[in-house]
């Protein structure tokens, strides 16, 4: 495959839509003939990332999560999960503790365990949160 394939989904930040994100990721990863282990890791990571947004981004529970899936020429899948929500305290995230952050901290710990170069911070626009990670599609 030459060049990059990029797919962006904008979904309501509700748990019912997690499945859509997982299926889209599966579809994109299969384009590059991802092996099953890499695919399972990425599905797990995107689920954790989007679930964090569902749980926390929006105080009133209504908002979107934007998921960008980009297939690079060297057969890596880069995933960017963004929201327009309340954002977070950067210091706190740098030193997150599963015990203190409960499910959230664990979600991030899982993403770190199964993917590479995890980055988390505010969106370039300044509001909300942007979480980025990538993984090779070959184990």
């Amino acid at each position: 495959m030459t060049g990059a394939t990029s797919v962006t989904l904008v979904l309501p930040a509700q748990p019912e839509y997690l499945l859509v994100a997982r299926l889209a990721l599966t579809g994109v990863a299969r384009l590059a003939e991802s092996d099953e282990e890499a695919l399972a890791d990425l599905r797990l990571a995107v689920t954790e990332a989007a679930a964090n947004v569902c749980r926390h981004a929006y105080a009133d529970g209504a908002g979107d999560v934007t998921i960008t899936l980009e297939l690079s020429a060297d057969d890596r899948l880069e995933v960017v999960v963004e929201d327009d929500g309340v954002g977070f305290d950067r210091e706190g995230v740098a030193e997150w503790r599963p015990d203190e952050l409960g499910e959230d901290g664990m979600g991030l710990a899982i993403i770190r365990a199964v993917t590479d170069d995890v980055e988390i911070g505010p969106r370039p626009s300044g509001s909300g949160t942007r979480l980025r990670f990538s993984r090779s599609l070959r184990s």
């Binding site: 015990d99 899982i110 365990a113």
Partner: peptide, 11 residues
């Protein structure tokens, strides 16, 4: 934290 450290090992 021990639990922080344990997540990647368990996974």
């Amino acid at each position: 934290e021990l639990s922080t450290y344990a997540v990647p090992t368990i996974v």
